[in-house]
Amino acid sequence: MPRLSYRRALTRALADEMTRDGSVFLLGEDIRVAAASVTTGLLKKFGPERVLDTPLSEQAFTSFATGAALAGARPVIEFQIPSLLFLVFEQIVNHAHKFPLMTGGQCAVPVTYLVPGSGSRTGWAGQHSDHPYSLFAHVGVTTVVPATPADAYGLLVSAIRCDDPVVVFAPAGALDVRADVTDLAPVPLGRGVVRRPGSDVTVVAVGHLVHDALAVAGELAGQVSVEVFDPRTLYPFDWDGLLDSVSRTGRLVVVDDSNRSCGIAGEIIATVVERVPLAAPPRRVTRPDGAVLPFAPALDRAVQPGRDQLTAAIQLTCKDG
């Protein structure tokens, strides 16, 4: 079986969609030489007309992509740093996201914002280590955080084919994941997946944390039967899939690399408790409120949700009630 890396899965998705649909093109900083190792080989294959290196003008090229999308193209923007999304929040939210409604349905804005290396990159400190997916879920922009190579491929393909803007977070903590992949296929947006079945507690894990949750579930196997639910898309969220899981387990823990206040974990817990009676209070493991990732490795790790915290949260939740 061929081993596929997460990064190469992204490359394959871009190449396949560019081959399938001539309106797809890429733009970003240093993408012709594939500085982020995602656009590797694409310049040679598709030429400079479809692989555009931009000046360092995130705001202009993000709205340039909006305009191109309004005119029928399907741009994919690669961002070098997750924190750059703060620069272009205006362009994505005020324009790309709002245009269809504001114009009364006169247009579509099919742009994909690809962020390879989101979250902590270890040693990149405060301005390169953000994971702002909850912000996009909050404003209602389709937001995906694939955990595996197969999902990286399948969700990126679906993002490019979607008629609305989609932000694709490829967590730094997942970029080196490799997996045996037999067939690559589109993964539907808005559909989660149970990564490991269990009966005592549902753990919702986002992005790279899926792998931590699976490791913790394995370690706890003798004591607690943990079901790991990977939402894959944070907006629109697969509420049916999650409610089905929690209805069976009756317990909920969420592990999420967002800052705590107004992070997606809070929304997940709120929605579940509105709909399903739980046997014990739900818990969440997140970054702290207002987190800025400090530089020193031990500090960087201390601020990210960790396996020990997750283990403790699962044990407490299973003891309660």
Binding site: Q59, G67, A69, L70, A71, G72, E90, F99, M102
Partner: peptide
């Protein structure tokens, strides 16, 4: 392609739209 109420925001949008149309 719209009146736009964010001052200074529309120039880049129009640039992208014209570029994409001419590319076609």
């Amino acid at each position: 392609l719209g009146a736009n109420a964010i001052v200074g925001a529309a120039g880049a949008i129009l640039t992208g739209a014209v570029w994409a149309r001419r590319r076609r």
